[in-house]
Simulated assay, not measured.
Amino acid sequence: MDSSHDEGRRKALRAGVTAAAGLGLALLATRAGAQAPKLDKAAVKYMDASAVEGKECDDCSQFVEGTGGAAGSCRIVAGAISPKGHCIAFSPKPRR
């Protein structure tokens, strides 16, 4: 067999494997980018007012502040979230 023919086959095989790996990574990235369903408020024992000092929703890393006086939201809990609320999924914001 011709060595240039073997080299051509190796390059084609390498290109095919690289393309398949790229496609697989692209599919994984697409699935990872899809948002997971949010938790129900009852499942995390959400309350509109916290009874625990320093553990209010606006102190949580998952809280997203509302705009224009609107209620906030949460990255993991469904529905409108009060900045002064609390749930068992509380995760403190990192200290600066």
Score class of each variant (00 low, 15 high):
residue 88 I to K: 15
residue 36 A to G: 12
residue 54 G to T: 04
residue 88 I to M: 04
residue 42 A to F: 02
residue 6 D to I: 00
residue 38 K to Q: 12
residue 1 M to Q: 11
residue 86 H to W: 10
residue 95 R to N: 14
residue 49 A to K: 15
residue 10 R to A: 06
residue 19 A to E: 11
residue 30 T to G: 04
residue 47 M to S: 08
residue 46 Y to R: 00
residue 13 L to R: 10
residue 80 A to K: 08
residue 46 Y to V: 06
residue 50 S to V: 03
residue 39 L to N: 13
residue 62 Q to R: 15
residue 34 A to C: 13
residue 70 A to I: 03
residue 34 A to W: 12
residue 86 H to L: 01
residue 38 K to E: 06
residue 16 G to V: 03
residue 11 K to F: 03
residue 26 A to G: 08
residue 66 G to D: 14
residue 48 D to H: 02
residue 9 R to A: 03
residue 23 L to C: 15
residue 5 H to V: 12
residue 90 F to P: 05
residue 90 F to I: 04
residue 67 T to C: 06
residue 64 V to W: 12
residue 63 F to C: 05
residue 73 S to I: 00
residue 92 P to T: 13
residue 71 A to S: 14
residue 92 P to V: 09
residue 9 R to I: 12
residue 79 G to S: 12
residue 60 C to D: 04
residue 60 C to H: 05
residue 53 E to N: 10
residue 30 T to H: 06
residue 14 R to W: 01
residue 17 V to H: 06
residue 15 A to K: 07
residue 4 S to R: 06
residue 66 G to S: 12
residue 68 G to Y: 09
residue 57 C to H: 02
residue 87 C to S: 12
residue 67 T to Q: 13
residue 39 L to E: 11
residue 15 A to T: 08
residue 34 A to G: 13
residue 20 A to L: 08
residue 3 S to Y: 08
residue 82 S to P: 00
residue 89 A to Y: 07
residue 85 G to H: 01
residue 82 S to G: 05
residue 46 Y to C: 00
residue 63 F to D: 07
residue 62 Q to S: 02
residue 94 P to L: 03
residue 2 D to I: 00
residue 66 G to H: 10
residue 60 C to P: 07
residue 70 A to M: 10
residue 89 A to V: 05
residue 73 S to H: 07
residue 69 G to V: 15
residue 49 A to C: 03
residue 50 S to D: 08
residue 46 Y to H: 03
residue 37 P to R: 12
residue 24 G to I: 14
residue 21 A to S: 13
residue 14 R to G: 03
residue 46 Y to A: 09
residue 3 S to I: 01
residue 65 E to P: 10
residue 63 F to K: 06
residue 84 K to H: 15
residue 80 A to D: 14
residue 38 K to C: 08
residue 85 G to N: 07
residue 95 R to K: 10
residue 17 V to M: 01
residue 1 M to V: 12
residue 70 A to G: 10
residue 78 A to P: 07
residue 49 A to T: 15
residue 47 M to Y: 09
residue 49 A to W: 04
residue 57 C to Q: 02
residue 67 T to Y: 03
residue 74 C to Y: 05
residue 51 A to C: 02
residue 36 A to C: 14
residue 42 A to T: 13
residue 95 R to M: 09
residue 8 G to V: 00
residue 56 E to Q: 14
residue 43 A to M: 09
